[in-house]
């Protein structure tokens, strides 16, 4: 299998001197194309921080991140922004949709930032909105949608630029169990391909069975990558 993400000895700390605390402390792992990888761990263990570093949003204080062979943190700011725009889709913990845009426009935002013509971008976004089953909600503002629907809009927005890496932070946290499972089923079936690597942070043991592999974080370190230990919990 081809390596999609290589994290090597990644550190992030906050504060300096005696006040320095580590959010992520020497994490290394590989994730592969065609794989759906879970990151689990207690609250405050550094999951969001670690995902932000591998997706080019937060600069590590130490260590390297390679995505499909590119050392992303050695790129100049604008190139890194372009890299995120074209290669990485990120679904934020709280969605962060744009309330003043329609659902369809929300999905089209990454394409518009890629300077695609407005109408093309919207047409393409409509395809992905159909994929997540929300074509009939295209013209509504996102606040009119339910939590699960908003989650799917956020997924459609992360997917629209066909990124190789898709990162989802707690995609089911605000959803009930059934909706969570439906979304994970959908991601597994429709979104995961051999050319794509998906990393999901979750607390939600109800959806563990969709993962290919699970890594566990604790106190900023990667503790185990055993599935069985989790299944036993």
């Amino acid at each position: 299998m081809k390596v999609a993400i290589e994290a090597r000895d990644v550190h992030k700390w906050f504060g300096e001197g005696d006040a320095r605390t580590y959010a992520v402390k020497g994490v290394s792992f590989d994730a592969y194309f065609g794989e759906l990888l879970y990151v689990v761990g207690p609250s405050g263990s550094g999951k969001t921080t670690m995902l932000s570093m591998i997706s080019g949003i937060l600069r590590p204080d130490q260590g390297q991140v390679r995505i499909d062979g590119t050392d992303i943190w050695s790129l100049p700011d604008d190139d890194l922004a372009d890299f995120r725009l074209h290669k990485i889709g990120f679904v934020f913990q709280d969605f962060h949709l744009f309330p003043r845009l329609t659902t369809l426009e929300n999905v089209a935002v990454p394409l518009i930032l890629q300077e695609r013509p407005w109408d093309d971008a919207l047409a393409e976004a409509r395809r992905d909105l159909d994929v997540v089953g929300l074509g009939h909600r295209a013209d509504l503002p996102p606040v009119k949608l339910s939590g699960g629907e908003q989650q799917r809009v956020a997924i459609a927005r992360a997917l629209v630029s066909r990124p190789e890496i898709l990162i989802l932070d707690e995609p089911t946290a605000s959803l009930d169990g059934d909706t969570g499972r439906t979304i994970l089923e959908f991601i597994r079936r429709e979104i995961l391909t051999e050319q794509r690597c998906i990393v999901i942070v979750t607390h939600d043991s109800r959806i563990f069975d969709f993962a290919d592999r699970i890594v566990q974080m604790e106190d900023g370190r990667l503790k185990s990558i055993e599935r069985e230990t989790l299944d036993a919990q």
Partner: peptide, 16 residues
């Protein structure tokens, strides 16, 4: 600011 932050995370450049 949150919206601008989201745009930035998605890949908007400073110039945009």
């Amino acid at each position: 600011i949150e919206k601008f932050g989201a745009l930035k995370a998605i890949g908007a450049k400073g110039r945009d």
